[in-house]
Amino acid sequence: MKTKKITVMAMCTALAMILSYVESQIPSPGVPGVKMGLANIAVVFCLYRLGWKEAAGISLLRVVLVSLLFGHVASLMYSAAGAVLSLLGMIGLKATDRLSCVAVSVIGGVLHNVGQILMAWVLMGPNVVYYLPVLIFSGTVAGVVIGVLAGLIVKRVRPSA
């Protein structure tokens, strides 16, 4: 059982990293922080299939590894702030059991963007707040797409570990 869980977690981490890389190749629409959040598919899947500790581990590991491999030093701080806030929100919301993984993913997407804005506020001053409306909007839309995809995968992949 334990070996299987470690293997599934490793696969999810690898998947999250690949998805991050794929996403980094998609041209950005011109506003910093607007993105799909493809890697969150793996995190939401883990949250529902393995548990919150495993999902948090995978998400944080991905952030560190991806920033070291493909990003710059600054990107680690923004991603980490986004990932931590996003994880807290998703884990808390899932625990209430009132919402499906779509809403959980939406909250994750929005809070990821809010976390990045907060970090940008700390590093660069309060003017970055002007990005907040568009980032809440884009986080919501991306969160719906990611949540629906993750929901399909959770439903179709046989429970393990």
Partner: peptide, 24 residues
């Protein structure tokens, strides 16, 4: 019930982004 709660969350966030956008 979950679907309805989901839609409320999504609508609330879209509304929030719209209000913030207009306010700014």
């Amino acid at each position: 019930k979950q679907l309805r709660a989901d839609l409320i969350v999504i609508a609330a966030l879209l509304l929030l982004s719209g209000i913030l956008f207009l306010a700014l």
